[in-house]
């Protein structure tokens, strides 16, 4: 950096610290003016930065906000913003670390399912902005000979994501998204695997059969169908899993006959 840029770099460094940290501290480079104090003037920027980033998280994690309430959500989001500010000027990319943050955020420890619900919401957000592709119908599988099927690779739609959880995250997400009065979901409710897809404009959320996350992970790594099935538990309901994947628009291509 040229020496004459150092004062500006220094001012921006203290501005950055000043707008993000919890305590109000006006950068030394800020001049006094008649009327409102330096503190009030600087606070406009602090408020703009923090309020806009909290609002950006709010827009993406609406179910988390409903689960914890507005006040708790805003306080939580504010701590996240202070500790993990965005690293990209594209605001749609901000919030990927929120689920992991919730895992270690002590005040939310009573709600152990929050991080996985946040992962589902983040996957939905990512799916909305993912690249477009045209899903293929399951009929295409039927055109393959049984031997070819084993060696076939499925190309997944770029929007496709899976969120597996020991908690019933899809049931929690669904009732908090669509019901004016949320349905009570018992503590003995089984965990759920969420399939997130976006075949056209709308993002879809479905529940996948148990064990299917391992199958899909193998498919995503480029394994052929036969190999992927081998990596899933024997109890997996394969017919239902494949039917759901195709119906939800998760598959955009079949590459057949490439041996491993």
């Amino acid at each position: 950096m040229p020496p004459d840029m150092r004062p500006l770099a220094h001012a921006q460094q203290s501005f950055r610290r000043g707008v993000l940290q919890a305590r109000l501290q006006v950068p030394a480079a800020v001049a006094g003016l008649p009327g409102p104090s330096r503190e009030r003037r600087f606070s406009v920027y602090r408020n703009n930065v923090k309020a806009s980033l909290v609002a950006a998280l709010k827009a993406k994690f609406t179910v988390i906000e409903r689960l914890v309430g507005e006040e708790f959500f805003e306080a939580t989001a504010l701590v996240f913003v202070e500790r993990h500010p965005p690293r990209s000027p594209v605001l749609a990319e901000y919030g990927g670390g929120f689920a992991s943050f919730l895992e270690v955020f002590e005040p939310a420890a009573d709600l152990p399912y929050l991080p996985d619900v946040a992962r589902l919401e983040w996957a939905r957000h990512r799916a909305f902005h993912a690249a477009d592709a045209t899903p293929v119908a399951i009929d295409r599988l039927a055109t393959l000979a049984a031997d070819d099927l084993h060696d076939t690779r499925l190309t997944l739609h770029p929007a496709t994501a899976v969120a597996a959880s020991p908690w019933p995250i899809v049931s929690i997400w669904t009732t908090n998204t669509f019901d004016a009065e949320t349905r009570r979901i018992g503590p003995d409710h089984a965990g759920e695997i969420a399939l997130i897809t976006r075949p056209q404009d709308d993002v879809l959320v479905n529940v996948l059969p148990p064990g299917s996350d391992l199958l899909i992970a193998a498919l995503r790594e480029g394994r052929a169908l036969g190999t992927a099935i081998g990596q899933a538990p024997a109890s997996l309901d394969l017919a239902r899993t494949l039917a759901l994947l195709f119906r939800a628009g998760a598959v955009v291509g079949l590459l057949k006959g490439i041996s491993e």
Partner: peptide
């Protein structure tokens, strides 16, 4: 709006 890789999402002033 960006310093040291951190994006502050506001149009911050310059001297």
């Amino acid at each position: 709006s960006t310093h040291d890789g951190v994006f502050l999402n506001d149009l911050l002033p310059l001297p």
